[in-house]
Measured scan of single mutants.
Amino acid sequence: KRPMNAFMVWSRGQRRKMALENPKMHNSEISKRLGADWKLLTDAEKRPFIDEAKRLRAVHMKEYPDYK
């Protein structure tokens, strides 16, 4: 299984929150909104998620060195 990218790290928490706030919203609509919201974030706002994704990638490479 591939490590999560920055968007996936960020959206994991946001998806739960949005689903709780909008229980009747379909998952596909939540995904569209999350994508739009992510694009509106500044680089500074994205930085912690980018850093976490880099950390996850490094751990994955160490655990699965032959993964392609």
Rank of each mutant, 00 (worst) to 15 (best):
S28V: 01
D43T: 10
D43N: 10
D37K: 09
E29L: 06
Y67L: 12
R12P: 06
R47L: 10
F7E: 06
L41R: 00
V9Y: 02
F7C: 01
R47E: 11
F49H: 03
Y64D: 15
R2T: 14
A19C: 09
P65K: 11
D37P: 03
N27F: 09
G35E: 14
H60M: 13
M61E: 15
R57C: 12
I30P: 01
R55K: 11
I50Y: 13
V9N: 02
L34M: 08
Q14P: 01
W10V: 02
V9P: 00
R55H: 09
E29S: 04
D66M: 12
L20T: 11
R16K: 10
M25S: 06
F7R: 01
P48A: 03
K39D: 09
E29V: 02
A53R: 00
D37F: 00
Y67T: 10
S11W: 01
M18Y: 10
N22K: 00
M8E: 15
T42Y: 00
E29I: 03
M4K: 03
R57T: 14
R47A: 14
K46G: 00
I30S: 00
R2M: 13
F7V: 03
A58F: 05
M61R: 12
W10L: 02
G13M: 14
L56M: 14
A58T: 13
H26Y: 02
M61G: 13
G13E: 15
S11Q: 11
R2K: 12
P65E: 12
A44I: 10
I30D: 05
K54W: 03
F7H: 00
W38D: 07
L40D: 11
G13R: 01
Q14M: 09
L20W: 02
A19K: 13
F49Q: 02
N22C: 06
R57S: 14
A58K: 09
F49E: 05
A6Q: 02
M25P: 06
F49K: 03
F49L: 01
K54R: 11
A58V: 10
P3K: 08
V9M: 11
A6S: 07
E63Q: 10
I30A: 02
N22M: 05
K62Y: 11
I30W: 03
R2I: 14
A53F: 05
Q14G: 01
K39W: 04
K46W: 02
G13V: 15
K68V: 08
D51V: 07
W38S: 05
K68M: 10
E21C: 04
L56Y: 02
M8R: 01
E45T: 00
N27C: 09
Y67N: 15
N27T: 10
R33V: 07
P48T: 00
E45M: 02
H60C: 09
Y64G: 15
M61K: 14
G13P: 00
R55M: 08
L56A: 07
Y64T: 13
E29G: 01
T42P: 11
L40S: 13
M4S: 06
N5H: 10
D66W: 04
N5P: 00
W38A: 04
L41N: 00
H26I: 01
M4T: 10
R16G: 11
D37A: 13
M61A: 13
W10A: 07
N5K: 04
S28E: 15
L56G: 06
F49V: 01
K54V: 08
D66S: 10
L40I: 06
N5V: 02
P3M: 04
K24G: 11
A6L: 02
P65C: 12
R2F: 04
R33H: 10
H26E: 13
A58Q: 13
P48H: 00
R12M: 15
K62N: 09
E63D: 12
M4W: 07
L41E: 05
Y67S: 14
G13F: 14
N22V: 04
P65D: 14
K54N: 15
K54S: 11
M25V: 04
R2D: 14
I30K: 04
N22Y: 08
F49S: 03
L40K: 14
P3H: 11
R2N: 14
R47H: 05
L41I: 00
L34R: 00
R33E: 06
K46L: 00
M18F: 09
D66R: 07
R55T: 10
D66T: 09
W10G: 01
N22P: 03
A6P: 06
R16I: 10
W10H: 03
E45G: 03
N22S: 06
R57E: 13
K46C: 02
H26N: 11
D43C: 06
P48F: 00
R55G: 06
H26A: 15
M61N: 12
R2A: 13
M18D: 05
S31F: 07
R33M: 07
V9S: 01
K39H: 05
W38P: 03
A53I: 00
I50T: 08
E63P: 09
K62M: 10
V59F: 11
K17R: 10
Y64N: 15
R33L: 07
P48W: 02
R47S: 10
P48S: 09
W10E: 07
N22R: 00
E45R: 00
W38K: 04
E63H: 14
K24F: 06
K17L: 07
I50R: 10
K39G: 09
E29T: 05
V9D: 05
W10P: 07
K17D: 05
R47T: 07
R12Q: 15
L41Y: 01
R16Y: 01
F7M: 03
L20M: 12
P65F: 07
W38T: 04
R47M: 08
K62H: 11
N5Y: 02
K17V: 06
G13S: 12
R33G: 03
A6E: 06
V59G: 12
A19W: 02
V9A: 04
W10Q: 01
R55C: 06
N27R: 07
H26K: 14
A44L: 08
K54E: 14
R12K: 14
F7S: 01
I50V: 10
K39N: 07
K39C: 04
P48N: 00
T42H: 06
H60F: 02
A44N: 08
E45N: 02
H60N: 14
A58W: 04
E63M: 10
A44T: 11
R16Q: 14
Y67C: 14
R2W: 06
S11K: 01
N27M: 10
W10S: 05
R47W: 05
E45L: 02
V59I: 07
K17A: 07
I30H: 04
K54L: 06
R33T: 09
S11G: 03
A19Q: 14
R33N: 07
R47D: 05
M18W: 10
W38N: 06
N27G: 12
Y67H: 14
P65W: 11
Y67A: 15
L56T: 10
K39T: 06
M61T: 12
N22T: 04
N5D: 15
W10C: 12
M8K: 06
R12I: 13
M4A: 10
E29N: 00
V59E: 14
G35D: 15
A53T: 02
M61L: 12
Y67V: 14
F49I: 09
R47G: 08
T42W: 00
M25I: 06
K46F: 01
L56N: 13
L40C: 14
A53S: 09
E63V: 06
F7Y: 08
D37R: 09
L20K: 08
A44D: 13
A58H: 15
Y64R: 14
A44Y: 06
P3L: 05
K17M: 06
K62A: 12
P65N: 13
Q14A: 12
M61Y: 12
L20P: 04
N5C: 11
T42G: 08
E45K: 00
R47K: 14
S11H: 09
A6N: 05
E29D: 05
A19M: 13
V9C: 08
K1Y: 12
P65V: 10
A19T: 11
K1G: 13
R12H: 14
R47F: 04
K1M: 12
K1I: 09
A6C: 04
K17T: 11
K39Y: 06
A19F: 11
Y67E: 15
K17G: 02
T42E: 05
W38C: 05
L20S: 12
R33K: 14
K54M: 09
H26R: 09
K39R: 07
D51L: 08
A44K: 08
H60L: 08
L34E: 07
M18R: 01
A19L: 14
M4C: 01
K1D: 11
N27L: 09
P3Q: 14
D66K: 08
D66Q: 07
